[in-house]
Design a protein around this nucleic acid. Structure first.
Lengths: 344, 344
DNA sequence: CGGTCTCTCCAAAGCGCTTTGGGTTGGCGA
DNA sequence: TCGCCAACCCAAAGCGCTTTGGAGAGACCG
């Protein structure tokens, strides 16, 4: 069933039927009712391909997800982000076009999305300090929103978490507990957010006249293994730290495992503070329980970020001439059972 | 730059240019070269919207991902599956349309994909025993491939892991080690694969005249917390099991945590066998190391499954009249450090 | 009562591609 | 020389929608 058939069966023109279905005012309410009823009865939906061509809108948003590392890992954080964004897209009638490509292929992916006009806009995640995707998309004229920021975040729209403040706060918290030997298990420091978190820690240390110990400053893709191995190595070293600041709950789980395997107790012998993206399938155990969650963490829901990012992007597409939207989200420092006073 | 402009600039008709670019034989090789060069120079790509309308093909595959549980969790396994499938789609020029909807909204999502013809086929994941999506898609006439099976898997194409055999084998392995008190931490038993795994375990027990202890047979969404809490509860009970058979590496990590927190050692006091989907960011630590991986597991790469599923689906779309494709993958039983003889 | 609006509705022109159904040209055999 | 066949190329007709530019019919006004 297509528009032509439907309009013929109604004895109306395609124009009128189309307008009736799309809610234009030029059609009598009574006629609209009739059209809508007939469409429903015939189980008619406009062919999206034809509609897209006619309107010139793709009604789709592109997400390009880099596969990182040798293993071409898919960052599990992205799944929740997409779940949030997808909720908004669905509500607004947009499709989500997902492209998973090796990290070095992201530019080509965006370029293709632009040149064959298969999307109305794209989401950029996990930008590096000097991310080439930003100038690329500006050049292509494709609306985009960055989740995160680059070194010069003035001339585009973004939503980011206040990473410096978050980790500064977390470090202060550990310092206040008396910790002086604090390790940082950061994400890949080619990524902007990781650099900001490091900066937050360094600032907090510097403020008390402390310098970071290079041996304790680590950076890698945030897997459980990374946390486990690195923590194990540091704990077994001559100068073990008493606290770990970890960039994600996933490696934090690994740290906890390493601690536990050594007969130490998290929260007493070793303190852990991590960033918690509030991943749906890795909730910070006991978040709402009276005894508090497992991890003390800087918390910010990645899913909520996905939702908001989608809203902003769609808005950017609808109103291309508006000023840049730049949103900075604060994190909560959630007290959990993974921290305690520095052992004396 | 569109086809019309390009053809004018070349002094050729749209027909010829289109044919040249699409590799039809009616155009002289020399002309084709010229066209291709001009297209490249002008950075021309056919408008996908127009092409889709003209060809009647969406050049897109739909994946509908249910958000499960109260928290609307996104199953982290899906991310790797999609990464595998996406690889194939990209290679074949298909887009991946991702729709994440609450578990009860999947049917509507498929229905919409069919009615507005926005995809050429869909992937069905994690089917239940009597999954309504199968008859729905048959009725809609939308090509589909099921990853997994339903109770009557005759009349459609699917790819599945030999779950019964896998868990039978795993159970046998534990029985051979002398374990008699084996707990099953299964996935949601509304899902077909979980039922098959349970059956595998029960068959292995029955073969040795043993009956499963209902107290030890658990089933839920496979989170780390689920593993941790359930194992903790069982270990603290009057009749603690000596071995855990776990449906995914994620809850297995939780089990390990519970074991470790009680001062027990995994692989000596408590044995764990799990199914390992070879998730990229949760690799079974030390898989290639001489000491063996952390977990003894039935192993089957979900990403490879995604790749193969995509291949089959695209093939199904290209050749609609072929017989059903039904592929059953065997798993490997990978020996790791999480199992040992039953303590006496 | 003619002119001007406002309501409704319609025919037809795109959107940018693919594909059908020829047309033209030159070479070759008879 | 004529006819025929490849080899190349083209004009035009869709694909199924949206949207432009009216047109007809009443209603209202002076």
């Amino acid at each position: 069933m297509n528009l032509k058939q439907l309009s013929q069966s109604l004895g109306l023109s395609q124009t009128t039927v189309s307008r009736a279905l799309n809610g234009y005012p030029e059609v009598r309410e009574e006629t609209r009712q009739r059209v809508v009823a007939a469409a429903a009865a015939a189980n008619y939906t406009p062919n999206s391909r034809a509609r897209r061509l006619a309107t010139g809108r793709a009604m789709a948003i592109g997400h390009v997800m880099p596969l990182t590392g040798r293993e071409e890992m898919v960052n599990p954080i992205f799944a929740d982000f997409i779940a949030g964004a997808g909720e908004v897209y669905a509500r607004e009638g947009y499709d989500l076009l997902l492209s998973m490509v090796p990290a070095n292929g992201t530019e080509a992916a965006y370029r293709q999305m632009a040149s064959n006009a298969s999307v109305d806009g794209v989401m950029v995640q996990a930008p590096t300090l000097d991310d080439p995707r930003v100038p690329l998309l500006q050049e292509l004229g494709l609306p985009f929103l960055v989740h995160g920021r680059t070194a010069s975040p003035e001339a585009y729209s973004w939503l980011d978490v206040a990473n410096v403040r978050a980790f500064r706060r977390a470090t202060d918290f550990l310092l206040d507990l008396g910790h002086r030997k604090i390790a940082l298990l950061n994400g890949q420091e080619s990524l902007d957010f990781a650099l900001r978190r490091r900066r937050g820690m360094e600032e907090a240390l510097a403020e008390r006249g402390l310098a970071p110990n290079p041996l304790w400053m680590r950076s890698d893709i945030m897997t459980e293994q990374y946390g486990y191995r690195t923590a194990g190595e540091l704990l077994d070293s001559d100068t073990p730290p008493t606290a770990f600041l970890v960039s994600s709950i996933i490696p934090a789980i690994g740290v906890r495992r390493a601690v536990s395997e050594r007969g130490l107790r998290t929260g007493r012998d070793i303190s852990i503070v991590c960033h918690d993206d509030a991943l749906s399938y890795l909730d910070n155990d006991g978040l709402n329980a009276p005894e508090g969650p497992a991890f003390t963490s800087t918390r910010s829901s990645i899913r909520a970020a996905g939702r908001r990012c989608a809203e902003i992007l769609l808005d950017l597409i609808d109103n291309p001439d508006q000023p840049f939207v730049q949103e900075l989200w604060e994190t909560d420092l959630t007290l959990g059972r993974s921290t305690g006073p520095a052992p004396t």
